[in-house]
Simulated assay, not measured.
Amino acid sequence: MEGILNAQVRMEKPKVSRREGFIPGVIYGKDLENIFVKFEKTKLIGLLKEKGEKSRISFLLNNKKQEGIIKDVARDDSTNEIIHIDIQAVKGTEVVKWTVPVNFTGKELLNGRGLYLQVYSNEIEVEGESSLIPNSVEIEVSKMEFGQEIKIKDLKLTGEIRILKDLDTVIGVIANS
């Protein structure tokens, strides 16, 4: 099953899991007690590279397919290696709060015009049905002009998703390089 992580229930300490080639984690959710798990390191890293560290994922737990959102990826301060992952198990219609990455596309075309994008925030916090929240939000900046501000209200999200910050908050501005 491609793209589905196998979550193994973990009884040992996190340090032991890491030594054995796993990344320890915890799965929690509404009406669910915390479940301490471990994931195969190479598969988890591959999935995170493909989907991102704030994405929706599918996982198997006790041979049952479940959905979840990655809430936190903890890294070692000195090596930057992943040392722990937190996943919130969700059902499709469950309302959740989630931090979604903002991807600014077309930045390289600004450089050719002597401009660059100054980013103030590359993520936004939203609330809505878990199945409707995207893994990321994209905004095209290549045609923007010097001094133009990018505000949260410029992001395209469906009406069912509520943004939990002032819509006039500036998340980026086009500047001279």
Rank of each mutant, 00 (worst) to 15 (best):
F36W: 14
N62Y: 07
D86F: 10
I161A: 01
T158S: 15
S78Q: 12
K91N: 09
K91H: 08
I82R: 10
E108R: 12
V37N: 09
L110W: 06
V73T: 14
D154E: 06
E160G: 13
S55I: 11
I87L: 02
D77L: 08
L61H: 13
Y120V: 05
L48T: 15
G68R: 07
D77N: 15
L48H: 09
N80E: 15
E94A: 06
L110K: 12
F36N: 05
K43F: 06
F146P: 00
E67S: 07
I35C: 12
E138Y: 01
L60H: 09
L48M: 15
G114A: 13
A74G: 03
V126R: 03
N122T: 02
K107W: 12
F59L: 14
N62P: 02
W98K: 04
I70R: 07
V119C: 07
T42Q: 11
N80Y: 04
S131I: 05
I69T: 03
V137F: 03
V90Q: 00
I85A: 02
T79L: 08
A74C: 09
Y116F: 06
R56F: 12
K41C: 08
I161Y: 05
V26E: 13
G128Y: 03
P134A: 01
T42W: 10
I57Y: 03
L48D: 13
L132W: 03
N135I: 05
V37R: 14
P134Q: 11
N111Y: 15
L157F: 04
K38D: 07
V90D: 00
K107Q: 14
L115H: 02
G114P: 05
D72H: 07
I87F: 02
Q66T: 07
Y120I: 01
E127K: 03
G112I: 08
E40K: 13
D77C: 07
F59T: 02
V119H: 12
E67Y: 05
K30V: 08
V100W: 05
L47P: 02
L117G: 01
I124D: 01
G46K: 15
L132M: 10
F39W: 15
S78F: 11
K71D: 02
G68V: 06
L115T: 01
K107S: 13
G114Y: 12
D86H: 06
K97N: 13
S78N: 11
R75K: 14
L157V: 03
I150D: 04
T99P: 05
Q66P: 02
I57P: 00
G159S: 05
Y116V: 01
E160R: 06
T99C: 10
A74H: 15
K156N: 07
K71W: 00
N111Q: 14
E40S: 13
E67Q: 13
